[in-house]
């Protein structure tokens, strides 16, 4: 992204495969796709995101990964009016995709989980103190956990 508000279409499609808790990048593909503010919004909400970072690992933008609930599957009724139900999946396997903006400063991408503050923890005697907590960073009170990260192909080394 330049300092000027001109359109600079540049994005990357990522396809991940997962098996249980293991998540693996299987495709990184430059693509001319507009990523709307609907996706690349600055507000922090709970969920899984692909976070684009610069050479200093500073986050540039986040795009939500919409996988629904990997640990359950939706089962649809054959008869109209019957309820949709969900069933637990013992070992989730599958794949998902996300398209992220790739501004000029982007060097790496991380898959992150953003967890909302647990209301049970708020103000409790056992609540962790604000801050990194040792295994993740905080973002407006939300806990951020890195799942995996990788360099953007053709963008040089990250620090």
């Amino acid at each position: 992204m330049t300092d000027n508000p001109q359109p600079t279409p540049s994005a990357i499609r990522l396809i991940f495969e997962y098996d249980g808790d293991d998540v693996r990048l299987i495709l990184q593909q430059p693509v001319d796709v507009a990523v709307t503010g609907f996706d690349a919004h600055p507000e922090v909400r709970a969920g899984r995101y692909a976070e684009v970072r610069d050479a200093d690992d500073t986050p540039l933008t986040r795009v939500p990964v919409r996988t629904s609930d990997l640990h359950s599957a939706e089962v649809f009724p054959e008869t109209p009016g019957e309820p949709i139900t969900r069933v637990q999946v013992e070992r989730p396997t599958g794949a998902f995709t996300v398209v992220v903006p790739a501004p000029a400063a982007a060097r790496s991408i991380a898959l992150i989980d953003v967890a909302a503050p647990d209301p049970e923890d708020t103000g409790s005697r056992d609540a962790a103190p604000p801050g990194d907590g040792g295994d993740g960073r905080q973002l407006d009170g939300f806990r951020v956990t890195d799942i995996t990260s990788f360099a953007i192909e053709g963008r040089g080394d990250t620090k």
Binding site: P7, A34, T36, G37, F38, A40, T61, P101
Partner: peptide, 14 residues
């Protein structure tokens, strides 16, 4: 409305 941010570009009209 539409917004532009130096880090992410134009968001699109909503």
């Amino acid at each position: 409305s539409n917004w532009w941010d130096q880090s992410s570009g134009w968001a699109g009209w909503f």
